[in-house]
């Protein structure tokens, strides 16, 4: 266990080092300089350009820039090129907003996909199974932004509630109960959209896992003992089908930024994905790179946690 932990940590640090190099190169080697972002601005004189380059170390050789960038990142001195604010402070603020979406979306995903997947597996080949299978393909195939608009039209026309942004403008004076309801309405659509792909994939996966389990010998034994169907499925079957999903807790971490770019832009949700999109538009390299780096760290932490959980949950596995 200890040797695995140490080995895995070293391996992940090496991976992270290479990721830092590649993401740095991708952004810095691209044609066009960040100082060219506003070439028509008459106030941006060549002297300003030189000062800008000096201030953000752009006049130094590439490997020095790399070193300075990551030194600043780890010491917390990294500044955004646009407003000179510390990058970490900006991200922290947006992170909390994204966290809401992420938590609600994850809860929706897990609460829906397990019942759907299990019932589909139990009633294999029946109408319910076939329709959920088809539906999950539809959910994988639908462009998220198109579905978002359908949902917006539907919700706005049916319930007459505003859904764009985090809360209705000017709501701060209202009663608590109205404010909470308002926040919930604003949270519902983006988190459902974030959860859709996950529901489709996870319910298929649960179904496959459950199908695998209910053909095992011990399920037949349980039936032969005369246990009721519910006990057979949920006590003997489901518990064993659950094992792989314990480990998926680690793998959902990167979803925090991953697919949220489009959803957050549509709903004007001030989260990390939209921040990344805005940073790309403004060529704010420090923010782009830091977001990339954070996602990579989250992926690595996620795989690490899921590896550890594997060993805890299933003692047969020795890594």
């Amino acid at each position: 266990m200890l040797s695995f932990t140490i080995r895995s940590l070293i391996q992940k640090l090496v991976t992270l080092f290479f990721i830092s190099i590649i993401s740095f190169l991708v952004v810095y080697l691209a044609p066009g300089k960040p100082s060219q972002i506003d070439p028509l601005n008459p106030k941006f004189t060549p002297e300003d350009l030189v000062r800008f380059q000096k201030e953000f170390n752009l006049d130094k050789p590439l490997h020095v820039q790399y070193y300075l960038y990551y030194k600043n990142l780890f010491t917390g001195h990294l500044k955004s090129w646009k407003d000179n604010q510390p990058v970490m402070g900006k991200i922290q603020e947006r992170f909390l907003n994204s966290l809401w979406l992420f938590v609600v979306g994850t809860v929706i995903t897990w609460c829906l996909s397990f019942p759907v997947g299990i019932s589909a597996a139990i009633r294999r080949g029946a109408l319910f199974d076939r329709s959920t299978t088809f539906l999950s393909y539809v959910l994988i195939s639908v462009p998220g932004f198109f579905f978002a608009y359908i949902l917006i039209i539907f919700v706005v026309n049916t319930f007459h509630v505003p859904v764009i942004a985090m809360q209705t403008f000017g709501m701060t004076q209202a009663d608590n109960i109205y404010r909470i309801m308002d926040r919930i309405w604003h949270l519902v659509l983006p988190s459902i959209l974030g959860a859709l792909g996950g529901i489709a994939l996870l319910s298929r996966y649960v179904r496959a896992q459950m199908l695998e389990v209910i053909h095992q010998d011990y399920i037949r034994t349980a039936r032969a003992k005369g246990l009721s169907e519910d006990v057979v499925y949920y006590k003997h079957g489901f518990r064993n089908a659950l094992l792989p999903f314990v480990t998926m807790f680690g793998l959902i971490l990167p979803g925090l930024i991953g697919g949220s770019v489009i959803t957050e832009s549509i709903f004007a949700w001030p989260g990390m994905g939209r921040m990344g999109y805005e940073a790309i538009l403004a060529r704010d390299y420090p923010i782009i790179l830091t977001l990339n780096f954070i996602v990579a760290v989250l992926v690595l932490i996620g795989t690490f946690i899921s590896d550890l959980l594997y060993m805890v949950v299933d003692p047969r596995i020795r890594l």
């Binding site: 991976t15 993401s23 044609p31 697919g259 770019v261 790309i280 990339n292 996602v295």
Partner: peptide, 19 residues
């Protein structure tokens, strides 16, 4: 493994926006 650590859509968006 390294390539899988990148947020794919965000990476594509970054490169396409810069090029």
């Amino acid at each position: 493994d390294i390539m899988l650590c990148f947020p794919s859509f965000f990476l594509i968006l970054t490169i396409v926006a810069i090029l």
